[in-house]
Write a protein that binds this DNA or RNA. Structure first.
Lengths: 228, 228
DNA sequence: TTCATGGTTCGATGATACCCGAAGCATTGA
DNA sequence: TCAATGCTTCGGGTATCATCGAACCATGAA
């Protein structure tokens, strides 16, 4: 009888698109509810529940009950590392997905990633700042230029206050869903908060969608234009 | 549209037991033919061919034509590393396979591994020698004792001749299919040859099965008993 | 208690794909 | 040229499993 680690089981568990989406969503380190994960994977809650129990059965997830909610998170660091390794290998082989992902296009347009803006608009924001030399440096390691500081102050962001925080001000987020960089860190958080404070956008309850009003949409385009 | 590394595709490719068996067999670093891999996975060549093209399509394998044969090997080091990581994770979650593997129980009983005996009998052989202090050392690094040399000489094996070869005489093989150690190296080869020479066993054509005759079976048990 | 919400379980459906028999190429040797 | 070997392709049978509707539990609020 052949014995040994059952990588086939592990592979098949990871190998379902819905489950893979959930796992990658959980790579944020955050614990998410079944409903959130279902939305993330673009499936119904029943289906998600089935997937979650499989993932838990394989030891990839841990579950924490808290009141009426059940929070799911990756079991430990090792799981995240293996997923990371798989993503690296997939990327190096040019295995990119296209049609999977959340059904709701709003999620792809603008959503919250931790506490900053992700999705198309998140990428646009970063590109715009970089194209106009308000940022300097590389995609992964960058900083505000003087012009950048002025620009953000005009927008009503207290850059100096951000710099007093412990968190890095400028931090790139190579979000799993995009291969493009977008802005994270203290500045990323401040920008999203400011958009909401200005009434440009609001968080849609019970989802990760950021909904821009028509006026806010226009203002965003004005402040963060891109060449193409 | 979500884009990013498609770990689901990668997972599903690895996630089939037959393909996983092939991949693990290739982790030896050796290039194997389609027929060998089919036998390793316990499936027919046609099916194996289909699997191999999928693995190659996913960039996990590379193929080398040589005459009438086609040798398959892991594409590169990265693939092996990811597989290793998966095996580690699976092991840490207690995900061990039990019922998979070659369908033919004869293959599990006694088969050739490169050029030495593997399977249940291979493990039994090693255990027996170790229990009776004919071997000294650890599971991975061991040597013959004087008693061991005498024992093998009685069996008709020219130990001194083996020692004149370049290959190590004693070498453990932590075969991928067994977590138990069995005997490889020049001595492993010599033992298998001797079993065949003595008429205890013979290689079944076109497979890796080693078939022991009833008489050979009994002689093997006599020479290599185990306590349990 | 009653209602509402978050999740799970059950059953049925449909699609995916694993598998092998048979036939078809390709290469080598006689 | 013929035969043998190694491998791939094709076609169909079968089984697994993802999916969702509906019903069922559990927790918390009114």
């Amino acid at each position: 009888m052949k014995e040994g680690p059952d990588i086939a089981l592990l592979g098949s568990v990871i190998g379902d698109p819905a489950r893979a989406n959930m796992l990658i969503a959980l790579m944020s380190g955050k614990a998410l509810t079944a409903t959130e994960l279902a939305s993330e994977a673009g499936i119904t809650v029943q289906t998600a529940s089935s997937h979650l129990s499989k993932l838990e059965g394989a030891g990839l997830l841990q579950q924490r009950k808290q009141g009426r909610h059940r929070y799911f998170a990756l079991a430990d660091e090792d799981v995240a590392e293996v997923l990371e390794a798989l993503m690296g290998l997939a990327a190096s082989r040019g295995l990119m997905r296209t049609r999977t992902g959340p059904k709701d296009p709003a999620l792809r347009r603008a959503r919250v990633c931790y506490n900053h803006l992700a999705g198309d608009l998140g990428v646009q924001l970063f590109d715009s700042l970089q194209q106009r030399r308000l940022l300097t440096g590389t995609e992964t390691d960058f900083a505000l230029t003087d012009a950048g500081r002025d620009f953000l102050e005009d927008l009503g962001i207290d850059v100096e206050a951000l710099e007093r925080e412990r968190r890095p001000v400028c931090k790139s987020c190579l979000d799993w869903s995009e291969r493009r960089t977008h802005m994270a860190g203290a500045l990323g958080t401040a920008l999203l908060d400011r958009f909401i404070g200005l009434g440009w956008a609001e968080r849609v309850p019970k989802s990760r969608i950021i909904s821009f009003s028509p006026k806010g949409q226009k203002a965003f385009e004005t402040h963060f234009p891109t060449v193409n």
